[in-house]
């Protein structure tokens, strides 16, 4: 943990754990027909942490949930998703169920949504172990205890028989992480897991996640809107805007040399120490109306560097440096 794992971002020779090709998702119903993910492609190596960074409506959460094929019923999906050799979008329901939790598992912002209020923490974890690994109840319960100790729940034995509502917010989050890790997933999806937590607890959970990720070596996709959180956990970041990756690279590359005007604006408008008394720089305008995205670059209407060719076509992904690229006509 001394030198934080800012891993190599070079595409390694081994096959990546996750490949996503041209993922497109639109929500369609009687009242609306909106594209929310507009062609996202990426790959993720084993043990790598990718942060999807974006604001509400950027499509980051939908992109992440796609890896588990968790869509609302109105979703129309196209593209290819491969996780550890499984074609996620083509799997049968029963196969998918076996993969959820065992190969890919997920932690949420609000633990109460994924923990069942009528069962104890211990029995929920044990249940999951029994379902996915066919363990006996006794083995499963032992494993549950191990897991609670792993996520550093104090007096774990006592907490096994606690119900979710009896735990504090931080402990609940830990219990949910334990549940997610129950079957040693190869890919962990984290949907803003620390956003609802208090500052002093958020840092504890971030440290825990970093430690666990390091120890267990699982790949992680971490959705957040908070640059500070991304800086703590990410190897790589993908900045999303209007359903596209507008910039991706290693966390240091993106923080040191933000290349898309949106990323630059985001960094500048974030309130941090030392801006007191200074007028904040802002990104003008509002997030785009997804139902009526402008032609070309979706950020063009808010961009200070807009040129006529910005509205002609969606800019291609131009290379900034090794493993660092941005969808902007100004780059490359």
């Amino acid at each position: 943990m001394q030198i934080s794992p800012l891993k190599q971002t070079l595409p390694s020779a081994e096959t990546p754990l996750v490949t996503v090709e041209d993922l497109r998702v639109r929500f369609r119903s009687r009242d609306f027909n909106v594209p929310v993910v507009n062609g996202v492609s990426f790959s993720l190596g084993k043990g790598e942490v990718l942060c999807l960074l974006g604001e509400s409506g950027s499509g980051k959460s939908v992109t992440m949930r796609a890896l588990m094929r968790l869509f609302p019923s109105t979703a129309v999906v196209s593209g290819k998703i491969n996780v550890d050799g499984h074609d996620i979008l083509g799997l049968s329901r029963s196969k998918l169920r076996a993969i959820r939790g065992a190969v890919v598992s997920m932690i949420f912002q609000e633990p109460m949504t994924s923990l069942d209020p009528v069962f104890t923490i211990g029995s929920q974890i044990a249940e999951s172990v029994m379902f996915h690994e066919g363990a006996s109840r006794r083995q499963a319960e032992l494993r549950a205890l191990e897991l609670l100790e792993l996520v550093q729940v104090p007096s774990a034995k006592r907490r096994l028989i606690a119900y979710p509502h009896e735990l504090s917010g931080g402990l609940r989050q830990r219990a949910m992480i334990a549940l997610a890790l129950a079957c040693r997933p190869k890919l962990l999806l984290a949907d803003e897991p620390t956003t609802a937590l208090d500052a002093t607890v958020q840092i504890q959970i971030l440290l825990l996640l970093r430690e666990l990720q390091h120890e267990l070596g699982m790949a992680t996709i971490f959705v957040t809107h908070d640059l500070g959180v991304a800086c703590e956990v990410a190897d790589r970041v993908a900045v999303m805007y209007a359903g596209r990756f507008v910039e991706q690279g290693s966390i240091t590359q993106v923080m040191d040399n933000p290349s898309h005007p949106y990323t630059q604006g985001l960094l500048r408008s974030t309130v941090h120490e030392g801006v007191r008394g200074v007028r904040l720089e802002t990104i003008p305008g509002s997030p785009p109306d997804l139902a009526e995205l402008p032609a070309g670059c979706s950020f063009a209407p808010r961009c200070g560097f807009v040129r006529p060719d910005c509205t002609m076509a969606v800019p291609h992904d131009a290379t900034v440096g090794q493993g660092h690229s941005a969808r902007c006509v100004l780059v490359g």
Binding site: V34, V36, G57, G59, S61, V62, F71, Q109
Partner: peptide, 8 residues
């Protein structure tokens, strides 16, 4: 937003 986006 995540839930909201999901429900449209």
């Amino acid at each position: 937003s995540t839930q909201a986006a999901a429900s449209g």
